[in-house]
């Protein structure tokens, strides 16, 4: 359902971009959308945040000032909060936008920038993101930057809402990809920060992962997350009980 809604709204954006003069998003609407994203994000409401972030990015993309620091923050928020909530969430595109904007403004914290770079899906790489890239203003090189004051403080990416409905943790695997058992050695990014880092530290301390695929792996605790420890066995760590259940 969420996928359908999001695709529909991105499609609506495409219709709008064909007649930019008549339908360009107003700055006041962009600001309002960004403030709503910030509120939901800081309340830890992942699902609602994901939808709001996708909508806010659409508005920015069809505004007079698409190349602005807020676009990267809101795209990153959309990628993180949408992960695991729906099939087909365009995380690769959102991380790509976050990464592109970060190249211009340098406004993502360290771990967040690593995460966005690891998971960004560039133009033309995947058939599932073509429609988004076709409509994206960020493929153009002639965009004016610094055309709008930032609304979102990058520090909100490191907030720690206590009642978040999910916890997002990106684990970093530094050594030997492709070997059967590998240990994550640190949390590259977590949201909410404190709870995510604590859960991440617990997972790191407990087990090697079986066949971890790449240098960064993401788990969303809702409230539990599983990870492979043998070829046929998984461990589970939950928010309310930090005990693994193989």
């Amino acid at each position: 359902m969420l996928t359908a809604m999001v695709l529909t709204s991105f499609l609506a954006a495409s219709v709008l971009t064909t007649t930019p003069d008549a339908t360009m998003a107003r700055e006041v609407d962009v600001i309002e959308a960004l403030e709503r994203v910030e509120t939901l994000w800081l309340e830890g409401k992942f699902h609602d945040t994901a939808e709001a972030a996708a909508g806010a990015l659409e508005l920015i993309q069809i505004s007079a000032c698409p190349l602005r620091a807020d676009a990267g923050i809101v795209a990153f928020i959309g990628a993180v909060s949408g992960h695991g909530h729906s099939e087909g969430w365009p995380g690769g595109y959102l991380f790509w936008v976050a990464n592109e904007i970060h190249q211009q403004f340098g406004n993502l914290p360290n771990g967040a920038a690593e995460l966005a770079e690891a998971f960004d899906s560039g133009p033309g790489q995947s058939v599932t993101t073509d429609l988004l890239f076709i409509r994206s203003p960020y493929r153009r090189s002639d965009l004016q930057s610094n055309c709008a004051d930032p609304i979102l403080d990058p520090d909100i990416l490191s907030a720690s809402p206590e009642d978040a409905d999910h916890v997002y943790v990106a684990f970093q695997f530094p050594g030997r990809p492709g070997s059967f058992h590998r240990s994550p050695n640190r949390v590259a990014y977590a949201y909410p920060k404190h709870e995510g880092e604590a859960l991440g530290a617990r997972v790191i301390e407990l087990d090697d992962w079986h066949d971890a695929g790449g240098p960064i792996e993401v788990r969303v605790f809702s409230p539990c997350a599983i990870y492979p420890i043998r070829s046929v066995l998984y461990a589970e760590v939950c928010r309310d009980r930090m005990i693994p259940h193989p």
């Binding site: 359908a4 695709l7 099939e87 599932t128 990809p177 695929g213």
Partner: peptide, 30 residues
């Protein structure tokens, strides 16, 4: 992408299998 932008492309909801393939592909790319 430029060529596809002039082509009629209906939106296709992704299947679970496609999503899984996409994630595997991204991990390999990393």
């Amino acid at each position: 992408l430029d060529r596809l932008s002039t082509t009629t492309l209906p939106s296709v909801p992704e299947t679970d299998a496609t999503t899984a393939r996409q994630e595997a592909w991204e991990r390999r790319r990393q």
